[in-house]
Amino acid sequence: MGQVFITRVIPGTAVETLREAGHEVEVWPEAGPPPPDVLAARLAAADAAMTMVVDRVTPSMLDTAPRLKVLANMAVGYDNIDPAEAAKRGVRVTNTPGVLAETTADMAFALLMAAARNVVASDRDTRAGGWTTWSPTGFLGQDVFGATLGIVGLGEIGEAMARRALGFRMRVVYTSRTRKPEAEARFGCRFVEIGELLAQSDFVSLHVPLNGSTRGMIGARELRLMKTSAILVNTARGQVVDQGALIAALRDGVIGGAALDVTDPEPLPLENPLYTFSNVIITPHIASASLATRAKMAEMAAANIIAVLAGQAPINPVN
């Protein structure tokens, strides 16, 4: 059968599923990703690979991997792979859609709540011995109930975010490539242009894929349109935000804070100025990190590999 390389230890039963299908499986055992030269060597010896979104697969790597038939990305996004370049070399690219929307929206809303109510900052202060008395002015935050949420990108995750906002009776405005009348009726949200969304929202949550039109879409101009009390939540991709502009906006009090599950680069070096702001929350790209969701993502990726190596069409094709 086939030789399968998996670039990280994964949860669930996907490895066993692949082996039961008759494939030889090698799993990269280290916590970090395989270095580029190692990844290239493993791909050269593989018929299939299960990759993570941080595994950059270059055209030159594909040139030295004549056996490779499929790259099963264990993610919805696939900006780490050029599907067109892979297709030129006869390599199928697949992803794992439709499984992580609710889990990612849970995390996005958790970040929103934590930033609004100073959960992280107050926890740090308490652990450092700062809790000496109750104070009527200590860690005053923002109300979420009844506030305005701006959703940038009303796809599956954006819709899941809007659904959560209903329980807090939030006013939801959104912008997207196309209007979503059914979602508007279901969630009571309103389509606006991005400038109006930024100006109106108490919380702005980003849910767009990374591509040429979204790279750097939140820059200095967009940040200046936001309320000085507004909080930016990003669980999409770090490159969607101009990080230098965000740092300047936080330094100058242009916005009220940020909650980031994604950064540019990842991991974010400890000397980065974003770590110095008490009104910024940074988590290590864990929006889809529930055991059930990650295991399901791995199973979907394995199913795509099994299909392609059996000469069938992939279940979740990208190219």
Score class of each variant (00 low, 15 high):
His207Thr: 10
Ala46Gln: 07
Lys180Met: 04
Pro59Cys: 03
Ala307Ser: 13
Ala295Val: 00
Thr276Ser: 15
Glu182Gly: 00
Arg56Lys: 14
Met300Ile: 15
Leu62Ile: 03
Thr235Leu: 08
Thr148Tyr: 07
Pro209Val: 11
Val27Arg: 05
Thr228Gln: 15
Asp125His: 14
Pro29Thr: 09
Met50Thr: 00
Ala84Leu: 13
Glu196Gly: 06
Pro181Leu: 02
Pro267Met: 03
Asp252Cys: 02
Asp37Phe: 05
Phe109Val: 14
Pro209Tyr: 01
Ala220His: 12
Gly12Ile: 01
Lys180Gly: 01
Ser135Arg: 15
Phe168Asn: 01
Leu112Thr: 15
Arg8Asn: 12
Ile247Glu: 14
Val208Tyr: 04
Leu197Tyr: 06
Asn319Tyr: 07
Pro314Leu: 09
Trp131Lys: 08
Ala46Lys: 03
Met52Tyr: 12
Ser135Thr: 12
Gly253Ala: 07
Ala302Asp: 10
Pro314Phe: 11
Pro181Met: 02
Thr104Lys: 02
Thr276Cys: 07
Ala258Ser: 04
Ala289Tyr: 14
Arg19Phe: 00
His23Asn: 10
Ile194Glu: 12
Phe145Gln: 13
Ala14Lys: 07
Ser60Thr: 14
Glu26Tyr: 11
Glu24His: 12
Asn304Asp: 15
Ala44Arg: 09
Arg237Thr: 09
Asp47Cys: 05
Gln312Pro: 00
Pro136Gln: 07
Ile282His: 07
Ala44Trp: 03
Asp79Ala: 12
Thr7Val: 06
Ala301Asp: 04
Ile157Gln: 04
Leu68Ile: 05
Gly153Ala: 11
Val38Arg: 14
Ala236Glu: 02
Tyr275Pro: 07
Tyr174Gln: 04
Arg124Ser: 04
Met297Tyr: 02
Ala259Asp: 10
Thr64Phe: 00
Phe203Ser: 01
Met107Val: 13
Pro29Met: 08
Gly77His: 03
Glu156Met: 11
Val173Gly: 02
Trp134Ala: 12
Ile194Arg: 15
Ile81Phe: 10
Ser135Glu: 13
Arg42Thr: 04
Leu274Asn: 05
Ala147His: 08
Ile151Lys: 01
Gln200Ser: 14
Trp131Glu: 00
Gly130Met: 00
Met74Trp: 05
Ala303Thr: 10
Thr137Cys: 02
Val280Glu: 01
Met297Asn: 08
Ala310Arg: 15
Val119Ser: 05
Ser122Gln: 12
Phe203Trp: 03
Glu184Met: 01
Thr17Ser: 15
Gly155Asp: 04
Ala105Arg: 06
Glu222Phe: 08
Ala289Met: 11
Lys296Glu: 15
Thr178Met: 04
Phe203Val: 06
Asp63Pro: 06
Ala230Val: 06
Gly150Ser: 06
Val254Lys: 04
Gly219Ser: 11
Val93Asp: 07
Met161Phe: 02
Pro59Gly: 05
Ala31Trp: 11
Ser205Gln: 08
Arg163Trp: 11
Ala105Cys: 09
Arg124Phe: 10
Pro267Ser: 10
Leu18Ser: 09
Ala101Ser: 14
Val93Phe: 04
Pro181Ala: 01
Thr175Ser: 13
Thr133Asp: 12
Thr7Asn: 08
Val120Pro: 00
Glu271Asn: 13
Arg190Tyr: 05
Arg127Asn: 01
Thr283Pro: 01
Ala292Glu: 15
Val15Phe: 05
Val318Pro: 08
Pro35Ser: 10
Asn118Ile: 09
Thr293Asn: 09
Asp47Leu: 04
Thr104Val: 15
Asn95Trp: 11
